[in-house]
Amino acid sequence: MAFSVQVENIKCGGCANTIRKRVTEIDGVNGAEVVVEQGLVNVEADEALRPAVVAALAKAGYPEAGSVQGMASIKAKATSFVSCAIGRMDD
Rank of each mutant, 00 (worst) to 15 (best):
R50W: 02
V35G: 04
L49E: 04
E47V: 13
L49W: 03
V29G: 03
L40Y: 01
A32V: 03
A52M: 13
G39H: 06
A56C: 06
V54N: 07
G28Q: 00
A52F: 03
A58Y: 00
V54E: 14
V53H: 04
A52S: 14
E33S: 11
Q38N: 14
G31F: 09
V43A: 04
V29M: 05
E37M: 11
A56V: 07
A52Q: 15
V54I: 11
A32T: 04
E44I: 08
A32P: 04
Q38L: 15
N30Q: 15
L40E: 08
A32M: 03
V35Q: 10
V41N: 06
V34A: 08
Q38W: 13
A32I: 01
A48G: 12
Q38F: 14
V36C: 09
E37R: 15
A55T: 11
A32Y: 01
V41A: 04
A48H: 10
A55K: 12
E37N: 14
R50K: 15
L57F: 01
V41W: 03
V34N: 10
G31K: 07
V35I: 15
E44G: 08
A56I: 09
Q38R: 14
V29L: 07
E44K: 12
V41L: 03
V53R: 05
E37G: 15
G31S: 12
R50N: 04
E47Q: 12
E47P: 05
V36W: 08
A56S: 11
L49A: 08
R50L: 02
E44T: 10
G39P: 04
D46P: 11
A32C: 11
D46T: 07
A32K: 02
A58K: 10
E44L: 09
A58I: 01
G39E: 06
L49F: 04
G39K: 09
V43T: 06
Q38G: 08
G28T: 01
A52W: 03
L40T: 07
A45M: 01
E47A: 14
G31P: 11
A48Q: 11
E37K: 12
A32W: 01
N42G: 05
N30S: 15
L57M: 02
N42E: 15
N30W: 12
N30E: 14
G39I: 03
Q38V: 13
V43H: 06
N30D: 15
D46Q: 07
A52Y: 05
V43M: 05
D46A: 13
V29Y: 02
Q38M: 15
R50S: 08
E47R: 11
A48M: 08
L49S: 07
L40H: 02
V36D: 08
L49Q: 06
V36L: 10
V54C: 03
E47T: 12
